[in-house]
Design a protein around this nucleic acid. Sequence first.
DNA 1: GTCTATATTCCGATAGAC
DNA 2: GTCTATCGGAATATAGAC
Lengths: 190, 190
Amino acid sequence: MAARPTDTKESILRLGMEFIQTYGYHSFSYADIAKELKIKNAAVHYHFPGKEDLLAEIVEQYIQRYHELARSLEKPGISSRQKIQAFINRYTALCEHGKICLIGSVGSDYNTLPEKAKVKLTELVKLVLGLVEKVLREGKKKGELTFSESARIKSILIMTNLAAGVQLARITGQQDYTAICNSLMKQLTG
Amino acid sequence: MAARPTDTKESILRLGMEFIQTYGYHSFSYADIAKELKIKNAAVHYHFPGKEDLLAEIVEQYIQRYHELARSLEKPGISSRQKIQAFINRYTALCEHGKICLIGSVGSDYNTLPEKAKVKLTELVKLVLGLVEKVLREGKKKGELTFSESARIKSILIMTNLAAGVQLARITGQQDYTAICNSLMKQLTG
DNA sequence: GTCTATATTCCGATAGAC
DNA sequence: GTCTATCGGAATATAGAC
């Protein structure tokens, strides 16, 4: 099934991410991953000795993806509105597959997480909030975005709307999430 | 330990609620409850045959508490501002104990919930959103609250800010949650 | 209503062969 | 790098005595 040596490891990470966003960290097992990849329990343990090692690398991968998003948005010619939209689009993609964001999923389990994962999760949240805050501050300065709160507070408001919004979508339907997105963009771009 | 027959059942419900809000539905066991109440595993099963029965009753209890809140806010002489504050205060109380709201906790586990709990959770969310929406609509009509969105959308925005806000507080600290509350009240009451 | 005792299943994890 | 085999532990749950 796996040709190059790293293929299996990458597949495990991908599946782990998917399971966490779909079912939650405590609701999938190494057996679930092994079955899906048509390998055995022990093979998963070879790549990630403990489940907490897998979790830490999944959160780390999410961090790297946000660094990549930040870099891609630094290219010239992208409006602040487009940058905010790119951020929102990440949540929309999750929503359309019945998933929730990693922060919301793992965050709900915060008090049961191994210390290593707690630290990485905090790093991730600060990264995301910082990214949004920067876009907001620049957008306001350039006159492309309008909001009355501080950029810091506004980034928290937006992120909490989206993170809880994708969770709400699974309970009451996707139209509530769509309404959140429309409202956020309308607030910011008048 | 338990004098009246219903004491144990009430204690189990109370502990179950606390565990769900602190650790999550999949991270506590009947053994945890039994140990805390100094009874045995089997005694918990007597009151709630399956864990999903316990979950359903906990969500139902939460529904009843919101009905009580709704009734208490119908008394005359309470301003719309005070009603919103009463709603926010529920989240603040959770936050101060490192807990998150039932909706956010169980909502993260949505795809793994028994059908009975899913139905009750949907009922709970609609109840809470409806309650906030009503207060917003009346407050706007009376000139006590200001917002540009529809009351329905605004209720969703407020609820998602609070639900995710208490989760964020465990990760990055309580000051972010406090900032959310201050911002929400400032938005609504100018 | 609570107990002892136990059945069943699953999970995370490891040893050692290939 | 993956396998077979297995261990220890925990969780949900039930039978039957008190």
